[in-house]
């Protein structure tokens, strides 16, 4: 039970931090579309670094602490949200932007009242993806002794006891499904009637 809570705690904190950073980055990048064309692929490269390597490197600098895990997982949580949020913002119908500017919205207000609400659906889809990935990556926390469901999986692997592996992976899978379902509900709730179905 404790392991589930620790795992859950890693996921929620990291996805929250990652998403906030991602949305801010996406807003910044959407103001500089030319730069974004080069920056997005570079950020994509980070995603290809295996989690074990990344946690390993961070571990050298930060040590065996929960922060190491949180930082690593947050970094991994950024990209799916960033990609979706960026696409969501830059694909807002240019007519809406023109109408907004033309009737006197400044860039800030335009962002808050038009661009972000229009991109919200896409942002939530990104957060959903990040959450599900993070549930599985959080297993790596056990690698540097920070607990979570990975603990059982490592014990299982090391001692060749299948029941431990199952004890770790089934709750993790259920957590991923449950969180995904929850986010779907939130998404429906947050989508105004005028944006549904199209």
């Amino acid at each position: 039970m404790n392991a589930i809570l620790t795992h859950f705690y890693f996921v929620i904190i990291s996805v929250t931090i990652g998403s906030i950073i991602a949305v801010i980055l996406a807003i910044a990048l959407s103001r500089f579309k030319k730069a974004a064309k080069y920056l997005m692929p570079i950020l994509g490269i980070f995603q290809t670094i295996p989690g074990i390597v990344f946690i390993g490197v961070l571990f050298i600098y930060i040590g065996m602490r929960p922060e190491t895990i949180i930082i690593a997982l947050s970094v991994y949580a950024i990209l799916p949200v960033l990609k979706n949020a960026y696409t969501g913002i830059v694909t807002v119908d240019p007519a809406l932007i023109e109408a907004g500017r033309g009737i006197g919205m400044n860039p800030w207000i335009l962002l808050w009242r038009v661009e972000l609400p229009m991109a919200l659906n896409s942002i939530i889809t990104g957060i959903r993806m990040s959450t599900i990935y993070t549930v599985s990556w959080a297993v790596l926390a056990a690698m540097i002794g920070q607990g979570g469901l990975g603990e059982f999986i490592y014990i299982g692997i090391n001692s060749n006891m299948k029941q431990f592996i199952v004890m770790g992976s089934i709750p993790a899978a259920l957590m991923a499904i449950g969180l995904g379902f929850l986010i779907d509900k939130v998404q429906v709730k947050l989508t105004p009637r005028g944006l549904r179905r199209n």
């Binding site: 119908d93 007519a95 809406l96 023109e98 109408a99 907004g100 500017r101 033309g102 009737i103 006197g104 009242r113 038009v114 609400p117 229009m118 105004p192 005028g194 944006l195």
Partner: peptide, 17 residues
């Protein structure tokens, strides 16, 4: 701009409102 009304061909009503 808030003292000049503006109407465009694509209508441009905000679908979220």
């Amino acid at each position: 701009r808030t003292h000049i009304g503006y109407v465009i061909q694509q209508i441009g009503l905000f679908p979220n409102m």
